[in-house]
């Protein structure tokens, strides 16, 4: 039987691993800022690299597992918190904490919905769909991405999801380090700044890509 603390530790570890993945993902996406043809070859090469390497494969399974665990664990925690959670007729407890800290579940759900769409459109197409090929014979994911980002609603969805992710991370990163036992005030402060910077930079960069493509590729 897991304790309340160990369940949170699982959330923290899986969450932090997913943060690491965000960096790898972003590194790939940044290649989309290159001039069109260069970007196409480079991006498709990187995508191929990520799908072929055995090491990357293992990591990707850990990734899937992490997403799954993170989601399932959060559902369990949320359900278990229902019983002890105080309920008031008149409630102003919100003044004592940040809205995004209180609503990690909702933010997470938005991210999860986004992930499902995201996986279906890119990951599933890439793995199992009928893909065009580029000049080097690589699967042309670039084309799929650029086509998708021509749709305004898709860009909006993407940006909303990144805002949700950003707030999810602002709370999540500091919270995860605390859950893993970082108690020294100095490092707690550092992590807080680091978490904030990380969240904003990563999410802004992710969000800029569809906007950039939408406005430059028309």
């Amino acid at each position: 039987m897991l304790t309340t603390l160990s369940r949170k530790i699982i959330m923290a570890l899986t969450g932090l691993f997913l943060c690491l993945f965000l960096v790898i993902h972003l590194l790939g996406n940044l290649q989309l800022f290159l001039p069109t043809e260069e970007a196409r070859l480079q991006f498709n090469w990187y995508s191929h690299l990520l799908s072929g390497n055995i090491l990357i494969k293992i990591i990707s399974y850990v990734l899937y597992l992490s997403i799954l665990l993170h989601v399932i664990d959060s559902v369990i925690i949320t359900l278990k918190n229902k019983r002890p959670a105080p309920r008031y007729q008149y409630d102003q407890r919100g003044r004592a904490s940040k809205w995004y800290s209180r609503n990690m579940g909702i933010l997470g759900t938005i991210i999860l919905i986004f992930l499902v769409i995201h996986f279906k459109d890119f990951w599933y197409s890439y793995k199992f769909g009928n893909m065009p090929v580029d000049s080097k014979g690589q699967k042309d994911l670039y084309q799929i991405v650029v086509t998708a980002f021509q749709e305004w609603w898709y860009v909006v969805l993407y940006v909303i999801a990144m805002i949700a992710l950003c707030y999810h991370l602002i709370h999540g990163i500091t919270s995860a380090f605390r859950t893993l036992g970082l108690y020294h005030p100095k490092y707690v402060r550092w992590i807080k700044y680091f978490g904030l910077a990380f969240s904003v930079i990563i999410c802004a960069a992710f969000a800029l890509i569809p906007i950039y493509i939408f406005f430059t590729m028309k």
Binding site: K80, R83, P84, A96, S97, R102, M104
Partner: peptide, 15 residues
């Protein structure tokens, strides 16, 4: 006892 999980909202310290 059945107390919930801490999700680090920090409201407790404020109150």
């Amino acid at each position: 006892e059945g107390f919930g999980h801490c999700t680090n909202t920090e409201a407790c310290q404020v109150e």
